[in-house]
Design a protein around this nucleic acid. Structure first.
Length: 566
RNA sequence: GUACCCAUAGCUCAAUUGGAUAGAGUACCUGGCUACGAACCAGGCGGUUGGGGGUUCGAUUCCCUCUGGGUAUACCA
């Protein structure tokens, strides 16, 4: 809420105390048609309290502002009370709030240091990171960035899939067909090949599955050769993952695989036992839910006594509660795991009712390639590194065509490719399924990553050319509608970032970035900065400088690389 | 079978969380570079918000139902 809106509320509740309970920030709306005004107060909800029609209420309230010189006009249209701010005061107010980063400081206290644990990316060791890992990784990182910016204590967790019989398969296969050195040299793609080959052979010779189980048992028993293989898998995998994380600017505070929680499993099951939550059903140890939950039971142990995915996630959840004392724990995964997390969270709540509001499944829709079925076993997943390389190469072609003389072409192309891939993902609501489309993603026009980066380049070029100056900009020179629209949009920065945080929706910021870009480009078309009369240039450069800060921050929050020249 | 999610312009998506004449991009058709970068700007075309009921001052939004698509559904993760 800005100072004008505070003033409106103060006057309205002063004159009509009965409205006090109804009036709040949520009541103000941005008029659909900017001709109406800068902010609007819908009077529909007041009408029942004051026993008058909305239009009559609006008319009465309008009279309160007859003498008020904070507003250029106050009009009553269809039950909406529309306010036009006194422009120069509004401009001063918005620009002032960005001055010396006071607004940023205000935003940064929003989280109040509350701890939010965010579990994202979590690739499966020895498996190549594919396009299916992409969404979790970049959505998770963006949510992390947003929380951190808003003053939460964000804890990024990479929960590696580093345990299970698939490692037994690899160990047996490598002992037979390969060597430690070969794996070390050829890396993770080689492990994928071996994995596929194992499954092909196992279709003919089912006894191989038994061999794999034997090797996994060796691993569970800390057998030295098995352990050596396993450690190699992790090293080779992390090398590959870190390459991608570096390119995408992904960071974690804790990297702990499933194997880390093995030692807590017995204790976890015991705790649930002590609360009387467990029972045997069809030979398996389960937690059953109330009928109203409409969920199948959560399996803790198979009939053979082995633990399951859910058991490990419950153990991990309990560990995180103790280790991080979080106010919230977010799991950024595919929507397909909805039931799994619903079960795990319910078990956590049954164990301790105060856990009810802590855990959240941040689910997202499928990202698919046209005509590609994902299956690691068949080996036809699309490796993420190849996607990024291909994006870079396609961008490189376009750069050669349009602007061949920029420096660091390869590096720039990589950043544009990455920005394109990230923006393509983050610009739509999480829940939507996305079919990856090269042409759409790498298009340089319209609502795309390259376009967002291009506008930033233009902003920065202006600032580079105006240089810095000591004199204070004369804001009264800002009068045109394009600047004013831009300023109104800049005021939205704080609410937009908060909304993105509350809804765990980076797309809110992506869409805001598009709005900023459009508004800036209109400004750019109609207002020159460089070459104008000094005072005018300074006032415009001042505005563009604020825009650059906000724009750049939004790019940072999404993880879109910033570029000087493109 | 059951549960959850999705359905808005030819296509990809928004819509201030129940508000004003449902908005952008793209595609298509016009017009604009002797310019701080035309990867841009201005204009045009395009809608029974999947169908039908209901709730109310007001529904793309909430409820019911039907249709179409997706996901999950006990010893994989």
């Amino acid at each position: 809420m800005n100072i004008f809106q505070s003033l409106i509320i103060k006057k309205v509740t002063g004159a009509y105390p009965a409205l006090k309970e109804l009036v709040g920030a949520a009541l103000f709306e941005n008029p659909k048609n900017p001709e109406f005004g800068d902010t609007a107060l819908p009077c529909f909800r007041f009408s029942s309290v004051l026993k008058k029609s909305p239009a009559a209420v609006a008319e009465e309230l309008r009279n309160l502002f007859e003498e008020d010189d904070s507003f250029e006009s106050v009009t009553n249209i269809n039950g909406y009370l529309n306010f036009k701010y006194r422009k120069e005061r509004y401009i001063e107010y918005v620009c002032g709030s960005f001055e010396k980063n006071t607004l940023f400081n205000d935003i940064k206290s929003y989280g109040g240091g509350k701890t939010v644990v965010i579990d994202y990316s979590h690739p499966n060791v020895a498996k190549n990171m594919g396009i299916h890992n992409l969404r979790s990784t970049i959505i998770g990182q963006s949510i992390y960035n947003i929380h951190e910016f808003l003053g939460f204590k964000a804890v990024g967790v990479n929960h590696l899939g580093d345990w299970g019989t698939q490692f037994g398969k690899l160990m047996w296969a490598l002992e037979e067909w390969s060597s430690y050195e070969e794996v070390e040299n050829k890396g993770i793609l080689f492990l994928n090949e071996i994995y596929v080959r194992f499954h092909n052979e196992a279709e003919i010779k089912p006894e191989l599955e038994e061999k794999a189980r034997e090797w996994f048992k060796k691993l569970e028993d800390n057998d030295e050769p098995a352990l050596k293989w396993w450690k190699l898998f992790i090293k080779v995998s992390m090398d590959a993952y870190n390459d991608i994380y570096r390119r995408l600017n992904i960071k974690f505070d804790h990297i702990t695989g499933e194997s880390f929680y093995i030692k807590f499993l017995d204790d976890t099951v015991n705790r649930l036992d002590e609360r009387g939550l467990t029972e045997f059903s069809e030979g398996a140890l389960v937690v059953k839910f109330d009928d109203s939950e409409n969920m199948p039971p959560c399996l803790l142990k198979k009939s053979d006594g082995a633990t399951l995915y859910a058991t490990r996630d419950i153990a991990a959840a309990m560990y995180r509660l103790i280790e991080f004392k979080p106010n919230r724990v977010l799991y950024v995964t595919d929507v397909a795991q909805e039931l799994h997390f619903a079960q795990v969270f319910k078990v956590m709540e049954m164990y301790d009712p105060t856990n009810k509001d802590i855990f959240r499944h941040i689910k997202f829709g499928r990202l698919s390639f046209p005509n590609v079925q994902m299956s690691t076993r068949k080996g036809n997943i699309v490796p993420l590194s190849e996607v990024l390389d291909r994006a870079r190469d396609k961008v490189l072609d376009i750069i050669e065509e349009r602007n061949a003389d920029i420096p660091d072409k390869l590096q720039t192309a990589d950043k544009i490719g990455i920005g394109a891939v990230i923006f393509n993902d983050l610009s739509v609501s999480r829940i939507k399924n996305i079919e990856f489309d090269w042409d759409k993603t790498l298009s340089f026009e319209g609502e795309t990553g390259p376009h967002v980066q291009y506008s930033y380049v233009r902003i920065m070029n202006i600032l580079e050319k105006t240089g810095s100056f000591d004199t204070i900009a004369d804001l009264s020179l800002i009068k045109d509608e394009f600047s004013y629209d831009l300023i109104k949009l800049l005021e939205q920065f704080e609410p937009k970032v908060k909304q993105a945080c509350e809804e765990y929706e980076p797309s809110v910021i992506a869409n805001y970035l598009i709005e900023l870009s459009k508004s800036f480009n209109r400004f750019y078309q109609n207002n020159r900065v460089v070459g104008e009369e000094v005072k005018t240039m300074q006032s415009r450069a001042y505005l563009i400088n604020i825009l650059g800060t906000v724009y750049g921050k939004c790019m940072d929050l999404l993880g879109i690389p910033k570029i000087d020249k493109m």
